[in-house]
Computed example of a mutant assay.
Amino acid sequence: MRTGAFILLLASAAPAYAQEHAAHQPHEVQADAPDKAPPQSAHPEQESEIQAATALPPMDHGSMDHQQPGEPGGMDSGAVGHDPAGAMEMDGAIDHSAHGAMDKVAGIPEAPPPPEAFSGPAYAADAFVGSQTMAASRAAVARVVSGLPVFWFMADRAEYRVRQGKDGYLWDVQGYYGGDIDKFWFKSEGEGVFSENPESAEVQALWSHAIGPWWDLQAGVRQDLAGPDRTHAVVGVQGLAPYLFEVDAAAFVSNKGDVTARIEGELDQRITQRLILQPRAEIGLSAQDIPELGIGAGVDRIEAGLRLRYEFVREFAPYVGIDQEWRLGQSADYARAAGEDPSVTSFVVGVRLWF
């Protein structure tokens, strides 16, 4: 009798337990069996109260972001209804700080410095010692430094010339001794053929004064060492023209009253750090005919050459090249009368050195 009563009690309580257990299952589990009717409860009033207390609020599936977890802006399944703090963190709190740092880097101003950045003195020491005192001190230092004597010598061309007829030679050297502003400058050049006297030879002694960062004004005397004896007064400029052309231009007035001029220019074109191609040109001018020197009025001669040198070190660079010389106008007539060719082509081998 007792056993039958216990079985009847379990049978009446089983539907209520099953209903209460189903209310605590995840929503997805219940959706898996929509066709199964929930078991009937013997206490419908209690069932309504339990469902009202445990029911989740309705969810708008249309407003949910269906991006996959791990994608930008996506929401991990663990963040839905279980970890609000984690969802907020995943929603971009850390990402926003990272983007802020990137925005600061990307926002570096590209405009020039403001005017007040240059409002200070050109020399900071002026603010403590005084501008007049510092100006005098800087001038004294400049005088001392620029007055330090320096010796420099360069053989720009020292070459053997292979040409039709007899082979020849040429030298073109120069150097100076002095400071940055004032120097004693000397030059010498000449050429000829082997086993004969030089065709031309000269030496110059010049005072050189800097008239700018790139140019020197030069004045002095020139003495011819071959041919008729001539002494010339010299005035000219030497320096670096725009586009790195090295220019040497001078006018000469001889003790016989002859006025001549010479312009030389060359340009170093670096093929590599050691291999250099140098085009060079020289023009001779004369204000009058000078028959004893074989010089005609106007453009006396033009010489153009191309040399390729290799710098084993900057102070020593052998080269090979080709050189062409033309005598023009009356000068060409003088050359023909002397049995010379007014147009001469020479293949050259030489060395450029300095110390």
Rank of each mutant, 00 (worst) to 15 (best):
N255P: 05
E303R: 12
P318Y: 02
K104M: 14
T133L: 13
S63A: 13
M134Y: 01
D91H: 11
A135S: 11
V237M: 09
A317N: 02
L285G: 03
R314F: 09
E189I: 03
E45K: 06
Y243V: 14
D258I: 08
A106M: 14
A98M: 14
D216E: 09
A139D: 11
E292Q: 08
P69Q: 05
A136C: 05
R274H: 09
E266C: 06
L170M: 10
K104S: 10
A55G: 06
P15G: 07
V344M: 06
A11F: 15
Q273G: 14
G81Q: 03
Q324W: 15
A22T: 08
G220F: 09
A31C: 03
R352I: 08
D289H: 05
V351R: 00
P213Q: 08
S119A: 13
D126H: 02
T54E: 12
P72Q: 06
Y123C: 09
W152R: 03
I295P: 02
M64N: 02
Q67T: 14
G220W: 05
P198C: 07
E315K: 04
S208R: 02
A249F: 10
G190M: 06
L148C: 01
T231F: 04
D248W: 02
D300K: 09
L225K: 05
G147V: 12
F245H: 04
M64Y: 05
V162H: 08
A142K: 13
D95V: 15
P84R: 11
P228S: 11
K183A: 03
A124L: 15
G92Y: 08
G100F: 13
R301K: 11
S343N: 13
M154D: 12
R307M: 12
L277P: 03
R309E: 03
S119W: 01
S346E: 06
Q273S: 11
L225E: 03
L240P: 01
V320F: 09
F128M: 14
K183W: 09
A42E: 12
H232P: 05
A337G: 09
V235G: 09
D289K: 05
A31N: 05
Q278L: 11
A317P: 04
G192H: 01
V162P: 00
H27P: 11
S200W: 06
A251P: 03
A304L: 13
H99G: 07
L8R: 01
A122P: 08
